[in-house]
Amino acid sequence: MSFPLYAPAEEHDMLRETVRALADEKIAPQAAAADENEEFPWEVYKALVAADFHAVHIPEQFGGAGADALATVIVIEEVARACASSSLIPAVNKLG
């Protein structure tokens, strides 16, 4: 059964691909070390900030990407796919 009305927009699919590529390249290789060393993943944080994925929900007028709720969830989900601990970076920023 298909529900095209509820399908993600093309922009959301492109966002998922972009975040997944970043997660595979920059986040996943550091995930085990961050957990084993019980350290904040600073390199992951820097990569998310450089890509403007650390707080995508911030409105554009305040310097953010102005992403909607679904885009924010996609970012959190894709980061969590690579490293659950690192997904707290965009997730906690959303809570604020």
Score class of each variant (00 low, 15 high):
P59R: 08
S85P: 00
L15K: 05
I74K: 05
M14E: 10
S86T: 04
S85H: 03
V73N: 06
V49K: 11
H12A: 09
M14G: 02
A71N: 04
A23C: 07
V79Q: 06
V79E: 06
V75M: 09
L70A: 11
P59F: 01
C83G: 04
A31F: 10
L5V: 13
L15W: 04
T18Q: 14
A67Q: 06
Y6V: 07
F62N: 13
D52P: 00
V75A: 08
Y45T: 02
E39W: 10
I74V: 15
P4W: 09
A69W: 09
A31H: 13
A23T: 05
A71Y: 01
M14V: 09
V19Q: 07
L15V: 08
S2V: 07
I27D: 00
L70N: 06
I74G: 04
E77Y: 07
H12P: 01
G63R: 03
I89G: 02
A47K: 03
I27C: 03
Q30A: 14
E39F: 10
L70W: 04
A69V: 12
V19I: 12
A51M: 05
E38D: 15
S87F: 00
E60G: 04
A23W: 01
E77M: 11
V79Y: 05
H12E: 10
D24E: 15
A50T: 10
A80R: 13
E78G: 12
L70T: 10
A32Q: 15
P90L: 07
T18I: 02
I89R: 02
A82N: 08
I27M: 02
L48S: 07
K94N: 08
W42F: 13
E25M: 08
E10G: 03
H54S: 11
A71K: 10
A80G: 04
E78A: 12
A33I: 11
C83E: 02
P59S: 08
G63T: 03
E17G: 08
T18E: 15
C83N: 14
P4A: 09
S85E: 04
I58W: 01
V92T: 11
A82E: 08
H57Y: 05
L48C: 08
